[in-house]
Simulated scan of single mutants.
Amino acid sequence: MESGTLTDSQAGLHPDDDLRTQILDAARHLMVSDGYSSLSMRRIARKIGYSATSIYLHFSGKDDLFYTLIDEGMERLNRYLEEASRVNASADNVLRAICNAFVEFGLTNPEYYEVMFVLHPDTGSRYPAPKYRKARRNIAIIASALEKGIAEERFVIGDVALTANTIWATLHGVVTLIIAQRIDKTLQRNRLVTGTIEIIIAGISNPNLKSS
């Protein structure tokens, strides 16, 4: 080994990390392009140039791959939302930042987004409870912004959990339509996103709050 060259272990890398990443990338692409039911370990193996046996050393089957991709996507989304939630601003602007971050994540990572929120296998094991609890952290970030707005008397909300999920569902609809290229061609994408977020905020804003 040449002087100054780091081994994988010295660099903090596992020798199998690259193969695992290749497997997940190939599985994600095949799921989105051909559907979950068409996915097989053999197809993934052909795509990355390894044997199916090599894939089984990392993943027990299709469900394991699918749920790992969802988990990775949720972690990525969480980073987007966490960063947005740290903005030093009033609750309405924090919520704007979070909503914009959600949309940005979906449009920047369309394959992850489809695996996380659109694909629905006809058969498969139940989504693991620990992973589901981790996924709910993203809804909790929206809920925290709503609670901040209530504390500031900027928002009037009866049910925070319901409102947080409704906001998520509304943003999901916008992202899904844009990814699928199903929005009205006469409507600019940025205008749709901004307009949707402003309608969300207007719907929960305190009508008695005087603008400063």
Score class of each variant (00 low, 15 high):
I150A: 15
H58L: 11
R96H: 09
Y113A: 06
L13D: 06
I178Q: 01
S125A: 12
Q22E: 13
L6K: 14
L39S: 02
F59C: 04
S60R: 10
S60Y: 02
D17H: 04
L65I: 03
D71Y: 04
E114T: 14
N100Q: 15
P130H: 14
F105V: 10
A91I: 10
T5D: 10
S85F: 04
L24T: 01
A151T: 13
P121M: 05
Y127I: 07
D159Q: 02
R43C: 03
N190K: 09
D122L: 07
M74L: 03
G149M: 14
G61I: 02
R42G: 08
D64G: 04
E75Y: 07
T5N: 13
R79I: 14
R182E: 15
E75P: 03
P128Y: 08
K134C: 01
K148R: 08
T196N: 14
A129T: 07
R79T: 14
R86L: 12
I70Q: 10
T123P: 01
V156P: 00
R79G: 05
E2P: 10
T186R: 12
I70H: 01
H172K: 06
I204K: 03
G35T: 09
E114K: 11
A161E: 15
D8I: 00
G149Y: 15
K62L: 12
S205M: 07
Q22N: 02
E153P: 00
N138K: 10
L13K: 14
R76D: 10
L187H: 00
V160K: 05
A145E: 02
I142F: 03
G49Q: 04
K134T: 01
A11E: 05
A169P: 00
I183W: 01
D63F: 12
M41A: 10
H29W: 10
K47Q: 12
I200M: 11
V118T: 03
A145L: 09
